[in-house]
């Protein structure tokens, strides 16, 4: 810091003092006041969104967040995408397999094999790629509409619900593109399963 005072001409003698004061002041404004004011405003205006968009089932029990995917082991429920972190939302991420990584092929081939075993009635050329790939976050709450529809034969067989009922359920839970343009059509697996569970009961 000696250099500073030497190179500063008398006019700028307060350069170091201004630097220190501006740093501390903006640490308080940007690092404390801004996020606290944001939290206050967000909690006041959109309390449900600000607290994680929690989702309740038919009996009013909180079953998760509508934004965060869950793993579904029960084959009579719709299944989501592959998650290397098993949908543990204390963390996030994927295993970052590069396109030429042999582990990527191994994992995908295992997923396809498992799919075949659980869904003998559906040929694999109808199996959409989103069901056998790891999402970026490991927490993707969605699957494509096609990925929901091809699970209907299995779920129908296991639950006794007719295909038509299940198709309607999927249609009801299909979210369109945002503003009819942006992103993709999709189905929220947790919301779909919550509705399915209510129906099944």
């Amino acid at each position: 810091m000696d250099d500073l005072s030497k190179t500063s001409s008398p006019k700028d003698s307060s350069l170091l003092s201004v630097s220190i004061r501006i740093s501390i002041l903006f640490m308080i404004i940007c690092g404390i006041i801004y996020p606290l004011a944001s939290t206050g405003a967000a909690q006041l205006l959109f309390p449900s969104h600000a607290n994680g968009s929690l989702l309740k089932d038919s009996s009013g029990q909180i079953v998760g967040s509508e934004l965060i995917g869950q793993s579904f082991e029960d084959p009579s429920l719709f299944q989501g995408r592959v998650s290397s972190i098993a949908y543990n939302a204390a963390a996030s991420g994927s295993n970052n397999y590069g396109p030429s990584n042999p582990a990527l092929m191994e994992r995908t081939e295992a997923s396809i094999k498992e799919w075949k075993a659980n869904n003998p009635d559906v040929s694999i050329d109808r199996l959409p790629i989103d069901l056998v790939t790891n999402s970026g976050s490991g927490l993707d709450p969605h699957i494509t509409v096609q990925a929901a529809n091809i699970q209907i034969p299995r779920i129908s067989k296991l639950t006794g619900l007719s295909s038509a009922v299940l198709q309607d359920l999927v249609k009801e839970h299909t979210e369109g593109r945002d503003l009819a343009i942006f992103g993709e059509e999709r189905v929220n697996v947790l919301m779909l399963n919550t509705a399915l569970a209510a129906l099944h009961k």
Binding site: G52, Q61, A89
Partner: peptide
């Protein structure tokens, strides 16, 4: 936030999933 991004100082959430498992959900400002 209006489009559902959270903004809270509450600690990580713990919820019981649809299948009855425990899920931790990290959250924050």
């Amino acid at each position: 936030v209006a489009l559902q991004v959270p903004q809270t100082l509450d600690p990580t959430l713990t919820v019981k999933t649809l299948e009855g498992a425990v899920q931790q959900i990290a959250i924050g400002p």
